[in-house]
Design a protein around this nucleic acid. Structure first.
Lengths: 157, 157
DNA sequence: GGGTCTATATATAACGT
DNA sequence: TACGTTATATATAGACC
């Protein structure tokens, strides 16, 4: 999450994996704690790692047992419904990612265009400094002509 | 956590509490998902809120049940039910790869359009030659955007 | 190996629609 | 109401000890 965006796949290097586990476990537990406090809800987290003999449990072994017992008493049907929700959650995330991607592409486009404009207006190659009204009007004319050509090409198709 | 550092006490305003719950629940679930994937560990989260009739469970009812059994030292495993979650994650990864591909394609296209645009403005090419290079509609869009830019530059002068 | 220190990546509170 | 956006607060990967 930092210094470099991490690839969401199993970390093969054991040392790195262990470090990541410790850090993220702490972060996760902090989050549950906050959520529980802020919203006044019952919550429970259990993590099994091959690094510890005992699982990491929040808020406590007793608390976890209580919440788990409650969950176990749910009907299978209700549990099934929950699974569907899990899938829709996943779909939502994918959808969101796609939206972000689209937005990023548009932003990139804008940046590229700005770059092109600057390059042209500053006469990067053979042309001198074009930053005055006269030359801008010339450039505008050229572009409008291109636009006309394109429009007629489109109409012909 | 943003715009203002939040006070870690129960949120009395119901509307705010509900919003906070939804947001933080999503964040939390994402975190467990990541931790589980990155470190290859078993994990489980259960959240009870007064906003939903059903508790929010991760990774799924089956997964939660499995962790529950383990928590109670009743280790009986049925790997088959894990398949559901694995499929979800697989779909997610494929989706991600597709997104990357899409992004690259758009980037390439953008570069090509920029090149074409530069060639045109320098009079090294004509619109007729562009038919095979790219979608005319895309070119039209780029040009129109440039025109807007020029007009605002003119207005500014 | 585990703790500390940054630079970045993420999460999210307050707003806007 | 819920959802999208933006400014900040947090989380954390990699580096160093």
């Amino acid at each position: 999450m930092a210094r470099k965006k991490v690839n969401l796949i199993y970390i093969t290097d054991e040392s790195t994996r262990k470090t990541t586990f410790r850090k993220r476990r702490n972060g996760l537990i902090k989050k549950v704690d906050e959520l529980s406090t802020l919203c006044g809800i019952q919550a429970c987290v259990i993590l099994y790692s091959c690094f510890d003999s005992q699982p990491s449990v929040w808020p406590s072994a007793d608390g976890a047992n209580r919440v788990l017992r409650k969950f176990k008493n749910m009907s299978e049907l209700d549990q099934g419904k929950r699974r569907m929700d899990q899938e829709s959650f996943l779909r939502q995330r994918i959808e969101k990612a796609n939206q972000q991607l689209k937005k990023q592409c548009l932003a990139n486009r804008e940046l590229e265009m700005t770059k092109v404009m600057l390059e042209n207006l500053r006469g990067e190659s053979s042309v001198e400094n074009l930053m005055n009204v006269m030359d801008l009007n010339d450039l505008k004319w050229v572009i409008q002509e291109n636009l006309k050509e394109i429009n007629s090409s489109l109409a012909a198709l």
